[in-house]
Amino acid sequence: MSSNLLELDGLNKAFGGNQVITSLTLKLEEGHVSSLVGPNGAGKTTIFNLITGFVSPDSGRVRYAGKDVTGSSPQDLKERGLVRTFQNLRLFLDMTVFENVLVSLERMLRGRARARLERVRTKEVLTRVGLWEVRDVKASELSYAEKKFLSIARAMASGARCLLLDEPASGLDGPSRTLFHELMREFKANGQTVLLIEHNLDIVREVSDSIVFLDRGNIVASGTAEEIFSDPELSERYFGV
């Protein structure tokens, strides 16, 4: 029987009197890829911020791996294996590709063995996303697709149990898209849980086990890709078909 790794229970958040998230309840099954879709301003990124501790909810609880983590700091949540990326990537632009990944997984105080392990892991991850050859290049000099994969690599490196990826695939072309699909499959095979925000509905359809459709801070519909995309009302109102 599968269990829920992440549970959002009755979350509310308002910014300056503007209700962004309303009584949001959501469960993410461990080892599944779930996607948040919806128009701009639906509150998708706010949900990421609420889950990862960057923003505190006005009310409601966040439970992760069976524990109430409402109000935990982003750093504590990262320690517990909850890692996110950002829509605008937020790479360390003045650092090399290698440093970008290494810094995301290394500890301040560690012995030689652990330090070596960190470097081995960095190499593994960079090789997997096809960036090992450019490891000494500054992040600012990468192509758009390379930047996207570096951002994913940074999140992957620490062996996260739950990955929250904010528009990781939008703008990716053929081969990059294939690589993205492979990574998603590997995350699933490893038992990692993924929550995606993605505008590219083809990708959402291809990789998601479940989809949550949001509008103005409310869940309008949720279900499998088939259920969501065959819903005539959603299709008419949002997908323009």
Partner: peptide
């Protein structure tokens, strides 16, 4: 380089 990203990475 990016404080928010650094926080997200612990």
């Amino acid at each position: 380089d990016d404080e928010t990203a650094a926080i997200a990475l612990g």
